[in-house]
Simulated scan of single mutants.
Amino acid sequence: MLINDNLTASSIYQQIAQKKAQLANIDKKDFEKSSHEKNDSVNLTNGKNIDEKDYQRVLDKFENLDAKTRAHEQLHASLANTKGAISYNYQMGPDGKLYATGGHVRLDTSIPKDEASAIAKLDRLQKASTAPDGLSSADASIARTANLNKMLLLSKEQEGVQNAN
């Protein structure tokens, strides 16, 4: 069977087989290259050996930051009602493990209609947001807002007492 310019079906199949073999070789080389890259380690020390003390110092910093971050967010969550679970930001340490380096918890900032309940809840919110050391700007903002709302409620309560007299 003759197809265009002396090309037969068998020669076309032969060319297709050759192209498939070439592609298979390329795929094999790419796979081998990626396998070698997985086993390679990145050398960031410019030929210098990493001191075990330096490695341990960096690892200790990650572990300490992780512990502080978790304790900070858990303290917030334990002192007030929350809207969901604690969310952490992670960074990979030198040992390949993920360490919490930041986080947040959504506190329930809704205010009950009952003034006594509202004041009690605002006190809890203020305590929860200011309890840990190292206040973030979000912590300070929640504390400020809770304090302002509490002052507004107390001033309304004071006006109600004065108007009743």
Rank of each mutant, 00 (worst) to 15 (best):
residue 32 E to W: 03
residue 62 F to T: 03
residue 104 H to S: 14
residue 38 K to C: 06
residue 50 I to N: 11
residue 43 N to Y: 08
residue 98 L to R: 14
residue 29 K to W: 09
residue 74 Q to F: 00
residue 49 N to P: 06
residue 97 K to T: 12
residue 89 N to A: 12
residue 81 N to D: 15
residue 107 L to H: 02
residue 67 A to P: 00
residue 101 T to I: 15
residue 126 Q to F: 06
residue 63 E to N: 10
residue 33 K to W: 10
residue 120 A to V: 08
residue 101 T to S: 12
residue 45 T to R: 13
residue 92 M to T: 15
residue 72 H to R: 11
residue 112 P to G: 12
residue 96 G to Y: 09
residue 49 N to K: 14
residue 77 A to G: 05
residue 100 A to G: 03
residue 57 R to H: 07
residue 118 A to L: 09
residue 55 Y to W: 13
residue 81 N to Q: 13
residue 61 K to R: 12
residue 59 L to G: 03
residue 104 H to M: 08
residue 47 G to R: 08
residue 64 N to A: 13
residue 129 S to V: 03
residue 44 L to C: 07
residue 56 Q to N: 13
residue 54 D to S: 11
residue 45 T to A: 15
residue 114 D to M: 03
residue 77 A to K: 09
residue 85 A to I: 05
residue 79 L to I: 02
residue 86 I to T: 07
residue 47 G to E: 10
residue 57 R to S: 08
residue 61 K to S: 10
residue 102 G to Y: 02
residue 121 K to G: 01
residue 33 K to R: 15
residue 105 V to Q: 04
residue 128 A to M: 06
residue 48 K to W: 02
residue 58 V to K: 08
residue 80 A to F: 01
residue 106 R to D: 15
residue 63 E to Q: 15
residue 43 N to R: 12
residue 52 E to I: 08
residue 89 N to H: 11
residue 98 L to V: 00
residue 115 E to I: 07
residue 110 S to W: 10
residue 103 G to D: 04
residue 104 H to T: 03
residue 43 N to M: 09
residue 117 S to E: 15
residue 31 F to N: 14
residue 56 Q to W: 01
residue 108 D to G: 05
residue 33 K to A: 12
residue 71 A to I: 06
residue 52 E to W: 02
residue 28 K to S: 10
residue 121 K to H: 13
residue 35 S to K: 14
residue 79 L to H: 10
residue 109 T to I: 11
residue 33 K to G: 06
residue 112 P to Y: 09
residue 103 G to F: 05
residue 93 G to T: 10
residue 112 P to E: 12
residue 74 Q to M: 07
residue 75 L to P: 00
residue 45 T to N: 15
residue 64 N to I: 02
residue 104 H to P: 00
residue 64 N to D: 12
residue 41 S to M: 08
residue 48 K to E: 14
residue 37 E to L: 14
residue 60 D to M: 00
residue 54 D to W: 08
residue 99 Y to F: 12
residue 116 A to C: 04
residue 30 D to K: 13
residue 77 A to T: 03
residue 120 A to N: 13
residue 84 G to F: 07
residue 30 D to G: 08
residue 50 I to H: 10
residue 129 S to G: 09
residue 41 S to G: 07
residue 123 D to W: 03
residue 30 D to M: 13
residue 59 L to T: 07
residue 99 Y to N: 06
residue 99 Y to V: 04
residue 116 A to K: 14
residue 31 F to S: 15
residue 124 R to S: 11
residue 67 A to S: 13
residue 115 E to C: 00
residue 84 G to V: 10
residue 114 D to N: 15
residue 84 G to E: 11
residue 65 L to E: 09
residue 87 S to N: 11
residue 60 D to N: 14
residue 124 R to D: 13
residue 126 Q to D: 04
residue 40 D to S: 14
residue 97 K to L: 09
residue 88 Y to A: 01
residue 119 I to Y: 05
residue 111 I to V: 15
residue 46 N to H: 09
residue 35 S to N: 12
residue 65 L to Y: 00
residue 68 K to Y: 05
residue 78 S to G: 10
residue 85 A to Y: 06
residue 104 H to I: 00
residue 28 K to R: 13
residue 106 R to S: 11
residue 51 D to G: 06
residue 37 E to K: 11
residue 59 L to P: 01
residue 59 L to W: 04
residue 122 L to P: 00
residue 70 R to T: 02
residue 110 S to Q: 11
residue 35 S to V: 08
residue 81 N to E: 15
residue 46 N to R: 10
residue 58 V to G: 02
residue 111 I to C: 07
residue 86 I to M: 08
